[in-house]
Write a protein that binds this DNA or RNA. Structure first.
Lengths: 201, 201
DNA sequence: AAAGATTCATACCGGTTGGTATCTAGAGAG
DNA sequence: CTCTCTAGATACCAACCGGTATGAATCTTT
């Protein structure tokens, strides 16, 4: 019977775990549920991952971080006009996303809120994501300053911190309201904040 | 031996539950821990509260909401210059609070992130708090418009939504970084946002 | 083809969870 | 003094949790 090869089952478990964690949170995520979703058994899981914590950290590193890199960070780093790229990405988030996407909230934010004070390893991995995210935004703003699209007196470090924080805050509110409309309204205000950093016409 | 009267034991349980939930989150909160903290037993708890969920909702209604009302909402409603009151409250948060206060994050935000999609009753009670909070901020901004301290073209509803969202986002980031410095930096940017709503000098 | 290492399944474990049934002690009413 | 109602204690339960030990295939190496 059907062995798919070790890598495929590993990623199968990884994706099922990511989905379960996204729905239930990490602590409430049940290994039994993950295995039921995959059709596999505990032997398979504990062969590829030494513990539930290790599985969770793998989800953070290999699903959440990689996804953010591919969607936002890499495009932002390689952009010629990073400020426009950032605003355009926020636009795409505002207009494209559907209600369903918010029902479960932002996977990163969910884990940050739940795990940062419960588990130091989680906190470290999650903080790494937030730090690189913030750093990329800060670099975007600095390049915006060089292009005279952002005022020189703006504290890019603090502004980047706020943008990331407010971004997650918008997710959280939209998750509670269960509405894309809320997210759109909220995210548009964040755009206004970014635009308020520009020099006065 | 020492009966304190039913009301005192009820609030004793309520406060211990609030603390435990603040530390562990609701789902991970253990009634055994709560009872160990109070020195009481299950008989006492399940006499006053029919279930763990009911206990959690009581914490939301009687601790979290009442606390927010006393600290911010009531002062804001009664203020003659509500915009200054809001900015001053943000100032007090920025300057007064210590590192310890952030280690556990915002009790409201923690519960919103954890429970809003897991339990509909929780979602309803938490949403009620967020709605009234947002409404009070919106009313503050509208009164600011009447006093010509806020531009007339500002969408006060959206701005209030964003302020509450970003506020919680600042909490979340500070909780992950475990630093009051992060909160101060972040909250100061939120103040800047509010000030950016004022008419240009 | 024999030997060894992967890959996964099955069965089981101790511990913890929220919840309940039962009992006792005290307070107030008649 | 007794009856009743409330407040709280004790003991117990089934369900679920993450984790492990063992065994059976299958693949790789020699």
């Amino acid at each position: 019977m059907s062995h798919l090869g070790p890598d495929q089952t590993r990623t199968k478990i990884l994706l099922a775990a990511a989905a379960e964690i996204h729905r239930q949170g990490f602590q409430a995520a049940s290994i039994a549920h993950i295995l039921a979703d995959t059709g596999l058994t505990k032997g398979a899981l504990y062969h590829h991952f030494p513990s539930k914590q290790a599985l969770g950290l793998a989800v953070v590193d290999e699903v959440v971080l990689i996804g953010l890199e591919a969607r936002l960070l890499t495009p932002l780093r390689e952009a010629d006009e990073p400020l426009d790229t950032l605003l355009a990405y926020m636009d795409s988030r505002i207009h494209v996303m559907t209600d369903d996407a918010f029902k479960l909230g932002c996977p990163l934010n969910n884990l940050v809120q739940e795990m940062s004070l419960v588990d130091d390893e989680f906190k470290a991995h999650l903080d790494h994501i937030l730090q690189t995210w913030q750093a990329v935004i800060e670099h975007t703003l600095i390049r915006g300053q060089e292009q005279h699209r952002i005022r020189g007196d703006v504290d890019c470090n603090a502004a980047a911190l706020f943008i990331v924080s407010a971004w997650e805050g918008c997710w959280g509110m939209a998750k509670n309201r269960q509405s894309a409309h809320t997210f759109r309204l909220c995210m548009t205000q964040l755009q206004q904040f970014v635009l308020s950093l520009a020099p006065r016409a």
